[in-house]
Each structure stands twice: as C-alpha cells, then as structure tokens.
C-alpha cells in the first residue's frame, strides 16, 4: 500500500485543515485500528476499492466544512431569488453554487423573528455532512440526542442562547432520508456587507441551530 496520500500534499503530521492529526500514529496499536487496516487491505486486494479511491474520499470529506454552508447562507441573505430556491430545494441550490454534496437530500429551515429551528438526530448521528463536513462530537452525544427534543430551550441555554418566549422553537429530528440545515436570520447592522464578509459571520452552530451568527 502506498504511503498515505496526504503526505504528498501536506505538511507531515498536519491535516488538510491545518490542524494536527490526533497523535495516533505513534501510540500503541489498538484492536480496532488493526481491524481498520485489515478491512482496508482485504477490500483493496479483493478489488472492491483502490487506495486512490480511499484517499480521494478522505480528501473530499476534508474539503467539506462549515465554510460551504456559510457561503450558501450568505448567498441566501443577499439574493432573494436564490433564497427562494434554497427553501424550495436546498440540495439543488447547494449544487448550483458548485458544492459536491453527493446524493444528499437537504432541507433548509429558516429562522425568522418569531421562529428558531434546531437540528438533532435522536436515533444515531445524521448530519448534513456532505455540505458542512463531519459533525461536532457533542452532536453525537447521549445528552444532546436525548434532550434536544424534550427541552430544546434548556439545551440552547447551555450553548449560551436564550430565546424569548414569543419565539417558537421548531426541532427537526433527522429520522430518515432528509438532512437539515438552518438558514439563520441575517444579523442587524450588516446592510453594507458583501457575500464574503457575511459568510464570515456564519458559524457552524448557527446552521445547526445551537447558535446565532456573529454580529459585525
């Protein structure tokens, strides 16, 4: 098997995002790591996969990040026709912007002055990963999965978000084939900003519903 594909393109020991990989390459080999190596080698030897396909898939996943979603949100904030298309079919609107989201069935849910949306997957860890990248660890925890559907306001308070009573909370449990992304409300005081400046205000959590965009 060739060296890890990333070694040819990135600093030794650094992920493409510029963060260090967790130091697992020189810690004691675990049973499950041995299984991963064995499964990968057997699938390659039997012709199911190639090392290049595996490397390309890792690169594709690394290239997905909340910045993709932020660009979609910023476009929706500045282009009413795009926003309408996004709310009608978020998959097509994301593809229209050039994002490779694969077969993702995406629904965008809009925050307004009187509605706040929150995304969860109580049964496993469904997440709009093909747009936003892999989910944060807290999204996959028992605490978030259990509580977000019964006491969303209390959970949001733990994230530092206090919602007034007149705002209706809509929780979305990703139980089947759809994935959800929140279209946060455009912050006040951003009238003169362009798309790139606006995108910089959009946080990952604001697209899951556990946060709001930054204020300028």
């Amino acid at each position: 098997m060739p060296h890890d594909h990333h070694d040819h393109f990135h600093h030794e020991g650094m992920s493409p995002s510029g963060h260090p990989y967790r130091a697992d390459n020189d810690t004691p080999l675990t049973y499950w790591q041995r299984m991963e190596i064995a499964v990968r080698e057997l699938l390659v030897e039997k012709g199911h996969l190639t090392p290049a396909e595996i490397a390309a898939q890792i690169e594709a996943m690394d290239a997905r990040s909340p910045a993709n979603g932020a660009a979609v949100v910023a476009r929706a904030w500045t282009d009413p026709a795009f926003k309408a298309r996004l709310l009608e079919n978020a998959s097509e609107a994301s593809r229209e912007m050039g994002f490779d989201i694969g077969p993702l069935n995406l629904i965008a849910v809009e925050n307004t002055a009187d509605t706040h949306n929150l995304i969860v997957c109580t049964l496993c860890s469904c997440y709009p990963r093909n747009l936003l990248g892999l989910p944060p660890d807290w999204y996959k925890t028992r605490a978030y999965r259990s509580r977000a559907v019964r006491e969303p306001r209390t959970v949001l308070r733990e994230f530092g978000l206090e919602l007034p009573d007149h705002v209706t909370v809509r929780v979305h449990d990703s139980t089947a084939d759809m994935r959800y992304v929140v279209l946060p409300a455009r912050p006040e005081g951003t009238e003169g900003m362009d798309e790139a400046q606006l995108a910089a205000l959009v946080t990952r959590d604001s697209m899951i519903g556990t946060g709001l965009p930054h204020r300028p």
């Binding site: 990333h6 260090p20 990989y21 967790r22 697992d24 807290w138 259990s146």
Partner: peptide
C-alpha cells in the same frame, strides 16, 4: 439507541480533530 426524550446530563462541549484512522 432510541434516545429521544430520555433524561441526560449537560451536553459535553469538548471535541477532537479526527485521526487519520
């Protein structure tokens, strides 16, 4: 695994960068 609505503690906010494996 069907956890929706069960009692649980505060949401742990710590995370990690994914390892190559």
């Amino acid at each position: 695994h069907d956890m929706g609505g069960q009692d649980a503690g505060p949401v742990p906010m710590d995370g990690h960068d994914f390892a190559l494996w």
